[in-house]
Amino acid sequence: MLNTNETVRVIKGLTPIVLFIFGLTYFVYCRVTGYTPVKLPSLEEMKSYGPILLPFIYIFSYLVRAGAALLFAFVLAGFISELMPKHVLLNHLSSRRKSSYVLAALFAPLLTVCSCVMVPVFAGLVYGGAGLGPALAFLLTAPAANIMAIIFTANVISWKIAIARVFFSIIIAVTVGFIVSKTPWGKAVEEKSKARMGRSYGVTEYKEPLLEKLWQSFQTTCFLARTIIPYLLLGIAIVSYVEAYLPPKIVASYLSGFIGIMLGAIIGVPMYTPTLVEVVLVDGLKHLGMSPSAALAFLIGGPMTSIPSMLGVSRVIGWKVVLSYAVLAVVGAIIAGLCYYIVLGDVW
């Protein structure tokens, strides 16, 4: 006989799994069959409701289009943050082998679901782990290739852009990390931190039953949703005005071609967009005539050079290193945009 307590525990534990399966199935079903539950109004129709109702209708149409993908992405992020054996990943990152560059870039999306942990891990990598180069590789991939952002990009924009975003982010991050760690000021940081390395720690983690872990992962999901969704909704509302009132001529002439790629990568630097909002913005500009290569440059360059994280790490490694990685990241984003244009052309 199950008692009530036990039943509650099982229900709590199964909640995220049910939501995950529901989100994924619905997401795939809509993709495959092209099904939409409500017929979405076109932009012209939305505009006819006037400037006050416009953002609400725009938000609604987003929720219909991307709701399932968001649900699935948030639950997945919760799973990753709770169930990932983090000490195993961290142990791999504590060595100073060459492979740690690639590992840092690959693990970044798995370790940092929430951006507030990024700077401390970065500091840890510089002082006690793999060193400056891998630390930079980690710092640059984490926001640009984060799991939620990629799923959202794939759903809202296109699979090609999403895959290109991950691929180029990792390559750029590793390259930039390597180059910066070889500059004189990068070497100075390395020298200063070398004295401290070489301590591996004992982890005797507190064990708990799986059901409990699943429930915890769901709590993390809720926490992420609470933090991210308000900004996302606000972002969507602002983008609705951009899409409705920015003349397509301006976008088509400045955000396409080579100038578009350059500008795409550069405007991302001062413009700080919260996670996921950059995708909404690109989708809006896409309808106004932004080219896919410019979009890619923006999606890579923007998150890599976010001002808050630059401020955070400048205390650890100093401004010279920060500036050099930011410049190199922008250059990398431009090259990524060019490569996309050469290989795929104007295909989304």
Binding site: L90, G124, Y127, R315, V316
Partner: peptide
Amino acid sequence: MSPDIISKYGLVITPTVAVNGEIKILG
């Protein structure tokens, strides 16, 4: 983020809970 803590515990993810110098909860 302080170097002393990093050299004591190595690479950690926040929040981490350590009891008497032994990590109980990581990230």
